[in-house]
Computed example of a mutant assay.
Amino acid sequence: MNSIQPPISDVVARSADIPWVPQGSGNVWFKPLRISVAQNRWVNLLKVTKGGVVNRHRHLAEVEGWVIQGRWHYIEHDWAAGPGDFVYEPPGDVHTLVADVADEAEPMMTLFSIHGAIEYVDENDELVHIETAETKLRRYLEHCESAGIAPLDLAY
């Protein structure tokens, strides 16, 4: 018996038609481009303006990122990423993303492909919140509803 599902048709996510959704701490937003609840994967643009921080977190699976504009670094690492840089994050890596934004005119923007859950942890590595494809989709849909925006079907 063949358990492979036939491919879906091509999809174009027009990012201009997708709203920025607030994420956690202030000055951080995401724009979902694809969310697969069945595979617990998602692809989104992340935007961080001056003073924005993506709180300390642990990836349970690998993550790839491509920096589109601005610069950012992890407090726990000794490197910074800038436009055109590709970032690979292995499962288990714990870090806190800080945008190196000099002014509000050009926020940091990175395309991330996340494969699996993210555990947000406090300074003692105690679990605070788990982000999954399902919670990401729910956050997007709730934001669209509260803003009176018709959500696009990004779950495939």
Score class of each variant (00 low, 15 high):
2 N>K: 09
3 S>A: 10
6 P>D: 05
6 P>R: 02
9 S>R: 12
9 S>M: 10
15 S>H: 13
17 D>L: 14
17 D>S: 13
19 P>R: 04
21 V>G: 07
22 P>W: 04
23 Q>E: 10
32 P>S: 04
33 L>H: 08
39 Q>C: 03
43 V>D: 14
43 V>R: 11
43 V>A: 13
48 V>H: 06
49 T>G: 13
54 V>R: 04
55 N>R: 13
56 R>Q: 09
72 W>K: 00
73 H>S: 13
73 H>T: 02
79 W>M: 09
80 A>V: 05
86 F>S: 13
87 V>P: 00
95 H>E: 03
95 H>M: 03
99 A>L: 03
101 V>W: 05
105 A>W: 01
106 E>W: 05
107 P>C: 09
110 T>S: 12
112 F>W: 14
113 S>R: 06
113 S>M: 11
115 H>P: 00
116 G>C: 07
118 I>T: 14
120 Y>K: 04
122 D>H: 02
122 D>T: 05
125 D>I: 03
127 L>I: 06
128 V>W: 00
128 V>E: 14
129 H>K: 10
131 E>Y: 06
131 E>C: 02
131 E>G: 00
134 E>S: 14
135 T>F: 01
138 R>G: 02
142 E>F: 04
144 C>W: 08
145 E>P: 01
149 I>R: 08
151 P>K: 09
153 D>G: 06
154 L>A: 09
156 Y>V: 08
